[in-house]
Design a protein around this nucleic acid. Sequence first.
DNA 1: TCCGCTCTTGACCATTTGATCAAGAATTAA
DNA 2: TTAATTCTTGATCAAATGGTCAAGAGCGGA
Lengths: 213, 213
Amino acid sequence: MPQAKSPRPRKTRIQAQNEELILDAALEVFSAYGFRGSTVDQIAAKCGMSKPNLLYYFRRKEDIYIAVLEHTLASWLQPLRALDPQGDPIAELTRYIRAKIRMSRNNPAASRLFANEILHGAPAIGAFLKGPLKELVDEKAAVIRGWAAKGLINQVDPHHLIFAIWAVTQHYADFDVQVKAVLGEKKRRHESRGDGHPRPDDQWPRKALTRLP
Amino acid sequence: MPQAKSPRPRKTRIQAQNEELILDAALEVFSAYGFRGSTVDQIAAKCGMSKPNLLYYFRRKEDIYIAVLEHTLASWLQPLRALDPQGDPIAELTRYIRAKIRMSRNNPAASRLFANEILHGAPAIGAFLKGPLKELVDEKAAVIRGWAAKGLINQVDPHHLIFAIWAVTQHYADFDVQVKAVLGEKKRRHESRGDGHPRPDDQWPRKALTRLP
DNA sequence: TCCGCTCTTGACCATTTGATCAAGAATTAA
DNA sequence: TTAATTCTTGATCAAATGGTCAAGAGCGGA
């Protein structure tokens, strides 16, 4: 007997297709409105699917959210992971910063998704931050400290250097509207269509702050 | 006749007292959960008040939110406003950065409130960003550009220098949980009680991300 | 003290929204 | 073709939530 008839663990073509469709839509919606601010209907509508159908693939709203985070995390951390202890420090750090800037520009939704999650206390990825992320950062911090010890770069606290890089690069994705507002909307290069922000319909119609109190 | 009997514009003692109570509670709640994630009940409970009573002072949830933003904005922008064109550039910028760090440490809730608002497209303060904020930043950017023109500081794009300062200083308030998680919870000086984050009860009980997929 | 105004709240309403279910349509393997 | 399985959705439910209302409690000026 070649193989016991396993209870079809394989994933259907339609299944794979729809799950990806959902994850893409969910990333857009969650990053724009946050977890509580997003509705299952919104996500379903964005992928032209009925709500019950969506919930056939992910049984709870939470599950969609977790899946999107998982789906995005690995690639988001890739640049830091690629920091090479053997490489030239300046070249490595430059490459890292460039990669982070590029990611913030190409995928601001991912940046906002994480920003929102952490901003509200990381209810879904708290354990991940204290575990795998901390390990990764500690590892790379050791690399940077090594470079400093050899006199290849200035003496800086590696952890806070990494924080500074995160802060500055992701700022342009997370606070995009503020950057644009302050710079005055003059067209910027590399601008991609669809910034993932709520349309003007979502701006509050009634009272709103326009001047300093 | 000394004065026409105006229809009591004065604010009652109880009124002033309760409004402040509400604004304080609302800042905590809104900054921790975002606008959509916060409920009027939560805010009411936090100041030991019934929901209808709270809505007696602020008729709609939006009104509370706007009021909190107004109440916080002026002081939040004060340090930048205080940047003195006549002062010594290094001293002025140092003072500004220090003030920003201090504010992020002493009032992280305010930082998170704005971060959340902007992250989601600034539905309530969009006009403010394009108007008064832009004017203020442009004004101070001119100051910095002036310093550079006189050769007192390096040639840098003033707007992006300001962005960088904002990004790095506010990072420690906005992404506090991530900073703490990565640094490993070892006690940090100047820590204030109550970080305004959801209690562990709010962590998701079921599935949650703990490892890289 | 007394009267008008402010303050307070329990009960209630309408809407939104996450989730379920049963029944039917589409797909796939034989 | 056919039967089992997967996929899809209209209808519906229960809970959460923003907001209202009427009625009563409390306060302050005369």
